[in-house]
Design a protein around this nucleic acid. Sequence first.
DNA 1: CAGTCGTGGTG
DNA 2: TCACCAAGACT
Length: 314
Amino acid sequence: MPDRTEQTAHEAHSNIGSVQDHSGSPSALHDPVLAWYAVNKRELPWREPGAGAWAVMVSEFMLQQTPVNRVLPAYQRWLERWPKPVDLAAEAPGEAVRAWDRLGYPRRALRLHAAAQAIVERHGGEVPDDHAALLALPGVGTYTAAAIASFAFGQRHAVVDTNVRRVLARSLTGVAQPSISPTAADQRLAVSALPADEPTAARWAVASMELGALICTARTPRCADCPIRSDCAWVRAGSPPYDGPPRRGQTYEGTDRQVRGRLLAVLRAASAPVPKTELDTCWPEPVQRERALDGLVADGLVEPLSRGRYRLPA
DNA sequence: CAGTCGTGGTG
DNA sequence: TCACCAAGACT
């Protein structure tokens, strides 16, 4: 437990630049969150000391929109099979899609494969430590570039994922939920909350994210166990409910995504090319079925062969 | 920039 | 039960 006395009267000189009025002071959060993390962090394979940047990168790709518990087995198998970028780069992209299993969003598998090839071609087979170089890799966006640079190389970057956006929205801005999609304001807020010192900033990045994953959760936050509850602007305001616009529910039944998922499941399970007649059994409605299959081919997830047969890309 | 892209666990 | 949610990227 962090040994903090009750809030040491926040100075009234509040604001940083143009960001909205935070009722909390970012620096007041650092020590409690870091201390909490030291005690409560999960032991995850990509966090082990010898994991390396490739392990971090693989985990980050898999964790894009997929929960930790579902990533773990696929992650283990992946690194066992492809311990270095060059190992994956030498494989057919379809093997990456197959090994991706049912993690969802299989284009991530394709992008990770392409990123491995780019790492071999541009960086001698080593995951680059430069933020701009990372950002230039397929499938690496603002978040993932910062995450790899911070987690794997200890650099100082604002690592802004949905967890961090929620933690900052509550603790600093005082609202129940962050904006629906990431905004420039979120990014600025995260930058302003970053410790100045590089190693401390790197620890803050994982720690604040972990806090969002374990305590400051979306549905039912465990405020009673939160190390910064006494400094949290949202708690101080009486934990007001979310009052913004309704969040779009993501329907799945009957969508192209469901059809794509079914088609790809058949192809993943097949060791030989699959006749289209077999794929046709995946979905009764022909127009949507064709559209889904065409989409998969266009995305490079499926390769059409002669005589109406299909397979994962070679 | 809003839409698209999988899958499964859960409150 | 069923809507909501999970370490986003890309167009």
